[in-house]
């Protein structure tokens, strides 16, 4: 008997006879009395969703900037210059205008590149799929303006552009509703951190140690 049969047999014996279609009972079994939509939660009432996003991002040590469509290229150029970035990873679908003013070498992510190659770039600039105000989270889904998961992982400096207000939602349930589970997803809330030393948060372990977020309107 295979282990599969063994395990399934044990489950069947442990639970005994049950209704045939669990999906029918699922909706009844799981009451969803929690908030699912853009809430009237206290924090969202007190500050607008955008301010809440900025506040929560900053609370976990992301550096937040704002720009409008015209000022974006200039802002990105300044951020990269301030960082001293010379080689910048660029996902294949990043709008070319975004980096039009940056005096940097733009490095594409080629399938043949190894992790070592990625380790030799200074920064990466991406878009995002969704940003969640209530938790200060950016979600990347591998779309062309975000690239493979590894491009936002190996470089030490990540600049993420969020198109506001379109890409911003208030809560986690709203975000899941917008995402496609078949795509590889990375949820990012602040730069990499650890709580492993005396259960206190320290920023900067394996992922990018600096996360800059640009909230851009009018693009």
């Amino acid at each position: 008997m295979s282990d599969r049969d063994v395990v399934l047999g044990r489950i069947g014996r442990a639970l005994g006879p049950r209704p045939r279609d669990p999906d029918v009972t699922y909706e009844d079994a799981v009451a969803r009395a929690y908030r699912r939509g853009p809430g009237d939660g206290a924090r969202e009432r007190d500050s607008g969703v955008l301010d809440l996003l900025a506040e929560n991002l900053a609370d976990y040590r992301a550096v937040v900037h704002r720009a409008d469509g015209d000022g974006l290229a200039d802002l990105l150029a300044r951020l990269l210059a301030a960082r001293g970035a010379r080689r910048v990873l660029v996902p294949p679908g990043l709008p070319p205008t975004w980096l039009a003013e940056a005096a940097v070498e733009q490095v594409p992510d080629r399938a043949a590149d190894t992790a070592y190659d990625l380790d030799r770039v200074d920064s990466v600039v991406t878009g995002c799929a969704v940003a969640i105000a209530g938790t200060g989270t950016l979600v990347l889904d591998g779309s062309p303006d975000q690239g493979r998961r590894r491009v936002t992982l190996v470089p030490d400096h990540h600049v993420c552009v969020v198109r506001v207000p379109d890409q911003v939602v208030a809560s986690v349930p709203e975000a899941l509703g917008r995402l496609d589970p078949r795509r590889p997803l990375t949820w990012i809330s602040g730069p990499s951190a650890t709580s492993d030393i005396e259960l206190d948060r320290v920023e900067g372990v394996h992922g990018p140690r600096t996360l800059e977020v640009v909230l851009v309107s009018g693009v």
Binding site: Y60, I132, R148, R183, P184, L185, T186, W187, S189, P191
Partner: peptide, 24 residues
């Protein structure tokens, strides 16, 4: 005790779906 932990990864099978070709 965080609103959200710094990183959460979600993946489905190997390809990451029809358009995530070559990711991971």
């Amino acid at each position: 005790a965080e609103r959200m932990n710094p990183y959460t990864s979600m993946w489905t099978g190997t390809s990451g779906g029809p358009r995530g070709e070559g990711d991971g």
